[in-house]
Design a binder for these strands. Structure first.
Lengths: 339, 339
DNA sequence: CTGAAAGCGCTTACAG
DNA sequence: CTGAAAGCGCTTACAG
């Protein structure tokens, strides 16, 4: 009941192992009649190609690793699906792991994947990754890799993400145009590259739309804190601003619930905007204005970048920023203006 | 610049390959001083263990395959994370693929994973999978596997899912107790095992709570159709019932938006309930009553079942049904009763 | 406690 | 057009 190997196939149809191997790759060296006979033997014996053995000999695995933090964020889920699609289209199978935003867990995953001899890695780094963490885990294994969605300060490598500064500018200009004169930024992990970029762009956008005193407050989330709690903390410190910009759509949902709990109607009493434009954003009450981060494009470009690097391991690192789009919806456009 | 192998390590510290191999597994056969020397060599040379080679010899791969349809459903995302967690806790690395509910794509993924010699497979079957499809893809490769969330008619194998009949009963009893006298079921793919089970249970639950004429209508989704369109189709055929039960929380969100678009307030004018209890359910307006399907438990049990089967490939197939819980929220409890 | 040898299932020059 | 042989990097009996 052992699984048949090319040796069994070769014996079954009276050729050598080498011939069977060449038939597997449909080599033009082999005659059509021989190919036919070999293929019939394979079917008869129930032969299943063993890639592990093949790859061991040819020193590549045709596998890629994908490590993201988790899938609770629909943006990460879309990113994951886009990468799987691009990988399998190009003949690669994907190892997947979730760091849950924990550096030790991330390190273990990278180690294991390196031991499985993945050809390359796509990593959405856990938010507290330091450059040393990555250098240790990736440099040691000399593993081609690209970072997505979050960059790591001081660590220069291939990177693909939405253009967060530009997203911030779009949101800021939109709010300014609506007549907003005060705004707060809620959520996101302190020190996150995406958070810093979004805030930076937001200030630029607000100013360019003529808002003189941008960002009355910006509160990063503490631990697993959600939007409801952030609204409470905000209201302890400042009166409700004209607009609240959430770090992403998930925080925005919490923010809108937090506002309602305080008797403030989101969309009417205060404009609410955020980032990512996950599918659910359109189905919120009110529908949520969001800067689309196009995860399907980010995922496809990241996979492309990684495959390019496999071809040429020594090329200079590249950074790809995907252009965002502002999707205005009622959470900002129905804002009634200052009383 | 070739990667060092155990041969290089052995040469570096003057022992044989076999000794290095034993040190890798921390064998008690080897003396502490020798182990120390070997480990120092490994670090010095930057040795990375090659599991592919090891596994080829030992005829197992320490990898599992996970194929789900997609991650757009948060329930599937939770399931995926739970399985990855259980797999990595047990020393397995996960291959992941998405069938996108397409049988040919599913078949290709299963074939490729079999060629990579995964030790076992967890499959959330694409909704139109026939038993022949699975028999062909899995029987041929003699691959240990367990199905999750959806069963396939006529295909007897290990299975883990929420108890959908019981979920239906819980929802039905809850609605009956609230005084509902008419209900419609919206969404889900026609022929889906989960859909059939939920409807069956729902009828039982409604009856047992004294509702004499259950389920005025049940409409499966056509293609990618969402809740909004389903509401429109429902209202063309019957007057709005006391309660709408959606196939899952994603349809429920659409259903509530569809109702609002028609001037019907969900929660007040009509009770809305559904299945899964994804994290977002609590944050809907109104918060959504849902029968929790506990994906973290389903995922953990499925992985356990697969590992058990790897131990004993010939045991009889088992079916594990995870007990659901009804989480009542305002989408039903604020229902005002018949006018 | 350690080493020499065979073998896992392929691919890859090299002959013929 | 096909075959014999070496080798990918490990593990596993088997000696000693």
């Amino acid at each position: 009941m052992r699984r048949p190997t090319i040796k069994d196939v070769a014996a079954d149809c009276g050729v050598s192992k080498a011939t069977v191997s060449l038939v597997l790759r449909d080599s033009p060296q082999i005659g059509e009649d021989t190919k036919q006979r070999v293929r019939e033997s394979m079917v008869r014996l129930g032969y299943v190609y063993n890639r592990r053995a093949a790859d061991m000999r040819s020193q590549r695995s045709r596998t890629l690793g994908l490590v993201v933090t988790h899938l609770r964020n629909p943006y990460f889920a879309e990113l994951t699906m886009a990468i799987e699609d691009a990988a399998s289209t190009n003949g690669y199978t994907l190892f997947q792991g979730f760091s849950r935003d924990e550096v030790p867990r991330q390190r273990r995953l990278l180690e294991t994947m390196a031991e499985h001899r993945i050809d390359g890695l796509i990593l959405l780094p856990s938010h507290d990754s330091r450059q040393e963490d990555l250098r240790e885990a990736l440099g040691g294994a000399r593993l081609p890799h690209v970072l997505i969605a979050r960059s790591v300060r001081g660590y220069d490598c291939d990177y693909v993400g939405a253009d967060n500064v530009r997203s911030g500018v779009l949101v800021g200009e939109h709010l300014g145009t609506l007549g907003v004169s005060s705004a707060a930024f809620l959520g996101g992990a302190e020190g996150s590259s995406a958070r810093g970029d979004r805030i930076e762009g937001l200030n630029v956008g607000l100013r360019s739309a003529g808002v003189t005193s941008p960002l009355a407050l910006s509160l990063p989330a503490i631990g697993d804190e959600g939007g409801i709690s952030l609204v409470d903390r905000m209201l302890e410190r400042i009166p409700c601003p004209d607009a609240i910009v959430a770090y992403n759509d998930m925080y925005a949902v919490g923010v809108m619930n937090g506002l309602r709990a305080r008797g403030i109607i989101p969309g009417r009493d205060v404009a609410v905007a955020s980032f990512d434009d996950v599918p659910d954003a359109a189905f919120q009450q009110p529908p949520l204005t969001s800067a689309a981060g196009h995860p399907e494009i980010v995922g496809a470009r990241a996979t492309r970048l990684l495959l390019d690097r496999l071809e040429d391991p020594d090329r200079a690192p590249r950074s790809v920023l995907v252009e965002p789009d502002l999707i205005p919806r009622a959470s900002t456009t129905s804002w009634s203006g200052r009383a």
